[in-house]
Amino acid sequence: MRWIWIDRFVEFQSGSHARAIKNVTLAEEHLHDHFPGFPVMPASLITEGLAQTGGLLLGEKNEFKYVVILAKIPKMEFHSWASPGDTLTYSAKLLDSSEQGGMVECTAHVGERLVAEGEIMFAHLAQEEGRTVDQKNFVFTMRLLGVFDVGRAGTGASTPPA
C-alpha cells in the first residue's frame, strides 16, 4: 500500500488554501476490518488525508525547502463518516506559517455533509534532521499522480514549478 491518502487536488491557491478529494473504495483492505459489515473510512486516515492536503499547502508555499512533519493536532472533531463510494473533499486553509512550521484549519465533507473539522500544526525539520525523511520522493510521487495539475502558484503558474 502507498501512503497517499488524497487522490487529487481540485483547487490549490499557493500559500492560502487548497482542496483535495479522496474517493473511498471497497478495494481498500482495511475497510473490511473497519468494520466487518459496516465499512467506514477510519477517522485516523481522514486525519492523515487532511494533513497531506495541509502539509502540501505549507510545503509548496516554501517551495518544498523544508521537511514538513505533522507535529500536533490541537483540535479534530468528527461529526459523521464516509463509506465506500463516497468522495471526501478535504479543505485546508493556511492560518499561519513561519520558518519553524505552520498551522492549518481544515474540514472534510461528503457532498454538503460535514464529516470532520479541526486544526493541524506542522513543524519544519532542519535539513540535517530531515535527511532520513524521503519527502522529496513523496512529493515526486504525488506529481506523478497528477494531484498538482490543478495547482496554481501566486503568479498563476502551475505548481510546483516544473
Binding site: 507535529a71 500536533k72 498551522m103 500544526m121 513543524a123
Partner: peptide, 9 residues
C-alpha cells in the same frame, strides 16, 4: 516543546 510554536502562532 511543540506547544511553544502553537502558543506563538
Amino acid at each position: 516543546s511543540i506547544d511553544f510554536l502553537d502558543i506563538s502562532f
